[in-house]
Structures are given as C-alpha cells and as structure tokens.
C-alpha cells in the first residue's frame, strides 16, 4: 500500500473518522512488517492491540451450585411459611375447642349418671361445710364476751392509778 495512502488513513484514524474497514486496512499494513521510521510508534500501538485481542478469560464460573443453593433457600423459606400456618391452625383449633361449652343435653346416659353422682357428693360436702361454719357462731360469741371482759380491765387500771396516787402522797 502506498505510504501516502497510509498516512492519510492514519490522519483520519487520529481524528476518529475511520470506518472499521479502514482500521482493518491500517492494522494489516502494520502487521506485514517493514514500516518507515517515523511510523514506528504506530507499529507498537497496533502490535499491542493485536496482542491484547488474544487475551482470554480462563477462569471457571460455577454456575450450577449457586442456582441450586438459591433453590434450596427458597425451599426452606416455604417450609417455614408452612410451619407458621400449621401452628396458627393448631392454635385456632385449640381456642375454638375451649370456647365450645358442653350442655347437659349433650351428655349420654353414663356421663349423666357420673355427673349427677359428682353433684351429689359436692352437695353433701357443702352441706357439712355449712354446718361446721354455723358452729363457728359460738366462737364469735366467746370472743365478744372476751372483749367485754377486756373492757372491764380498764376499770381495774383506773383503780390502780388511784391507789398509786395515794401511795405517793404518803
């Protein structure tokens, strides 16, 4: 290629006006070896360019493990959601069970009999208890008498005061 031509192309190249095809021409020119001295710097530039084109990415990218890890964490998330749902259902069931009161009409024969017997026992116990507490009335009577007696003691105190005065005077 004529030197004149290449110089024109380089001028355009520096002004960023070359097309990709023209740049390929320039590269081809510098790749073929002999280059006039004043264009030497360009030669290094284009040699560097063609060198760097050959660099390759060689590291492995572990694609699958990461993806499966994501899938597993997603699975765990859903399991926890399911666990919360189960817990809440359990709680709800428990509460409704407790709120449902059984009436006497719901019970069958045997249960009714058991219920009546228990009630009888409870009644017996409570009647005995009432009898015992009525006997307690006597105790309160005693304590009121005691209080009366204690009041009378005040009179004795008054009497003591008087005698002390008399003894002092002596």
């Amino acid at each position: 290629m004529a030197l004149n031509n290449i110089e024109q192309l380089l001028e355009k190249y520096d002004n960023a006006e070359t097309s990709l095809a023209e740049e390929a021409q320039i590269r081809a020119y510098f790749a073929q070896g002999d280059v006039p001295a004043h264009l030497e710097p360009y030669k290094y530039l284009f040699q560097y360019v063609s060198d760097s084109k050959q660099e390759q990415f060689t590291k492995d990218v572990p694609l699958l493990p990461k993806a499966s890890r994501i899938r597993r964490t997603k699975l765990y998330q859903w399991i926890s959601v399911a666990a919360v749902v189960v817990l809440m259902l359990g709680g709800y069931y428990q509460v409704t069970q407790m709120n449902q009161k059984a009436t006497l009409s719901d019970l069958d024969q045997e249960q009714l009999m058991a219920y009546n017997q228990t009630m009888e026992v409870f009644n017996l116990v409570s009647s005995k208890l009432n009898k015992g507490s009525s006997n307690l009335g006597a105790l309160t009577l005693v304590s009121s008498k005691l209080n009366e007696g204690a009041e009378n003691l005040i009179h004795i105190k008054e009497f003591n005061k008087a005698t002390n005065k008399i003894i002092k005077n002596k």
Partner: peptide, 20 residues
C-alpha cells in the same frame, strides 16, 4: 464518543512518539 476517541488516540500517539 468520536471526540473522546480522537483525543485518546492523539494522546497515545504523542506519548509514544515522545518515548520512541
């Protein structure tokens, strides 16, 4: 893009020539 490219190419050429 063209302006920046032209500027970069000129800088590279100047510095290379100077080194050379």
């Amino acid at each position: 893009v063209r302006v920046a490219l032209s500027r970069a190419r000129k800088t590279i050429r100047e510095k290379l020539t100077k080194k050379h």
